[in-house]
Computed example of a mutant assay.
Amino acid sequence: MSEREKMQAGQWYCCLDPELDALRAQARRAVHAHNTCAPDTRGAMVPELRALFKSVGQDCFVEAPFHCAYGLNLQLGDRVYFNAGCVVLDTAPVRVGDDTMFGPNVQIYCARHAKNPTERAQGLEIGLPVTLGQNVWVGGGAILLPGVTIGDNATIGAGSVVTKDVAAGDTVVGNPARPVRRS
């Protein structure tokens, strides 16, 4: 089984693999095209970035600068909005529901690295999916850690670090993020 196949199967894999390096280089080229295109020309997102993503719904908008690790694991519903400075390290599926919005500098991490220093030095990691439901608001500077699921209509406060699943309709804030009220 190749390292890419292991990554896609949710198993431990070596991120230093040449095939994965090539996929990350492809993503960097698409991200560069998006981030350096004049705003009047770029529109919602450049074709290279749209083609990179696994799927893109209608009326999605990605502000520049933007960064993703692979892009091929990123699935956007309709009317998804990424504000400037967002980072998606999509070593596993990242699913974003319709009408979900991200404030500036939001970071989504799927990769969990080996805790053992020797294994970590060998590039071992595992990707855990991140899923956001419909009509989610993620405040600026929030960080979503590997494996979390955010329910429909949830709100993530600015600067929050989400380490656990967030129930539908909940508002969470802080580090680690904790519920403050239900909508």
Rank of each mutant, 00 (worst) to 15 (best):
R28K: 07
G169F: 06
G133S: 11
A168G: 06
A167Y: 02
C14W: 00
C14T: 08
M1Q: 10
C15S: 13
Y13R: 06
R29K: 12
R178I: 12
A177T: 07
S55D: 10
G151W: 01
I108Q: 01
M1T: 15
A167G: 14
Q8T: 13
I150P: 13
D152E: 11
L145F: 12
T36L: 08
V56D: 00
V106D: 09
G169E: 07
E63M: 14
D59G: 13
Q11V: 01
N83H: 11
V173T: 14
L52H: 02
A44M: 04
Y109G: 03
K115V: 15
V46T: 12
T118E: 15
G159V: 03
D21E: 15
L72E: 14
L89R: 07
C68P: 12
Y81K: 00
N175E: 11
P179L: 14
L76S: 07
N153G: 04
G85E: 14
F53D: 02
D78V: 03
Q8M: 15
N83Q: 07
F82K: 05
A44I: 05
V162I: 04
E119A: 02
V87D: 06
A27S: 03
A114W: 11
A84Y: 14
T100H: 09
I150Y: 13
T118C: 05
E5A: 15
I143H: 01
V173K: 10
V148K: 15
D17V: 06
A64T: 15
Q134P: 11
G85N: 13
G159A: 02
D90C: 07
D152P: 04
Q134Y: 02
E125G: 09
T131G: 03
N73E: 15
R42H: 11
L132R: 01
R28E: 09
I108V: 14
H67K: 07
R29W: 03
T41H: 06
V161W: 04
P129S: 01
V130M: 08
G71T: 05
G140P: 12
L145Q: 13
E48G: 13
G103D: 11
L72Q: 06
I150E: 14
V130F: 06
R79S: 12
V148G: 15
A154W: 08
E125M: 10
R181G: 09
T41R: 09
G141A: 05
A177H: 06
L124P: 11
G147Q: 10
A111M: 02
A38P: 00
M7K: 03
P117F: 13
A142F: 01
L89V: 07
V94D: 02
S55I: 07
A158W: 08
V148P: 15
S2K: 02
L72G: 14
L16D: 13
T163Y: 09
A177V: 03
I143Y: 00
L76N: 06
M7P: 13
P117K: 14
L23G: 07
C37L: 04
P93W: 00
P129A: 00
G140V: 10
T131H: 08
